[in-house]
């Protein structure tokens, strides 16, 4: 029996719900646990050795610690005993790329006739700069790396296709191309750090490489029965979560 842990921010909710859909298929193979909380709380958690969470010396406000316990039954999780850990919801801040995709034509990609034009070297350099941003560096170079190849990283889902209109829209192509490049760079960096990188399952993507909007319907929240509503660009539903879990679990079993 493999002991596995899914840990992360609000994006873990899709996997928690997704596990309900597929757990029977792994009943005698995987003992899966979850530890998740909202991003504003999650980013204030830390390590002591391999124990992750809110520690005695934490600056996390008491009400946040209470929420953390309410969600997980504990304020900390010891990663020592897990064979595999899936870190869910890595934030690569990319909202600015949505603006770029909507305002610029890019060499070599479908064009909308915008007055502003971006060369491919400038576009590539812009996209690559996103992988140098603090959340990524913190994960790949920080204490998480001590888990080595027991750790797998799953990014926050890509923005929804519906944000860009039809799949053939130039903006969708530009944004999707950027996402592919970010993923490739992340995979390289993760490999260099001895960490595994789990790409978003292709079944959940549209041809340009954005999240298929079908998987955004009824995206669950971490607490309660409410779901994310339309203005949300990134949260996905249980079906998406099941695809991600299957891809991860099947790679280890």
């Amino acid at each position: 029996m493999i002991r596995a842990l899914v840990i992360g921010n609000s994006h873990a909710a899709a996997l928690i719900k997704g596990w309900d859909q597929i757990r029977d298929g792994y009943a005698d193979k995987v003992d899966l646990s979850f530890f998740a909380t909202w991003e504003p709380i999650y980013r204030q958690l830390g390590f002591q050795g391999l124990v992750f969470g809110a520690h005695a010396d934490s600056d996390l406000p008491q009400h946040s610690q209470d929420r953390l316990v309410e969600m997980n039954g504990t304020a900390q999780v010891d990663l020592t005993g897990f064979d595999h850990v899936l870190h869910v919801g890595l934030l690569v801040p990319d909202a600015d790329l949505i603006d770029t995709a909507r305002r610029f034509d890019v060499d070599g990609l479908p064009e909308a006739g915008h007055p502003h034009r971006l060369s491919r070297p400038a576009f590539d350099a812009l996209v690559d700069s996103h992988v140098q941003r603090p959340p990524v560096r913190a994960l790949l170079q920080g204490p998480w790396a001590q888990l080595g190849n027991r750790l797998t990283v799953l990014r926050r889902p890509r923005a929804r296709q519906s944000l860009f209109g039809p799949a053939e829209s130039p903006a969708a192509s530009i944004f999707g191309t950027a996402q592919g490049r970010i993923n490739a760079a992340l995979a390289d960096q993760a490999a260099s750090a001895g960490i595994r990188f789990l790409p978003q399952p292709v079944q959940t993507l549209t041809p340009p490489g954005l999240s298929d909007s079908r998987f955004a319907d009824t995206a669950p929240r971490l607490m309660g029965d409410k779901t994310y509503t339309r203005p949300d660009l990134y949260h996905m539903n249980a079906v998406y979560g099941a695809f991600c879990l299957k891809a991860w679990l099947d790679s280890m079993t």
């Binding site: 600015d96 060369s119 700069s129």
Partner: peptide
Amino acid sequence: EEPAPAGMPAALAQRF
């Protein structure tokens, strides 16, 4: 009239 894309780091924008 030829602004850098949003989010482009200053050093990168200057380079281009």
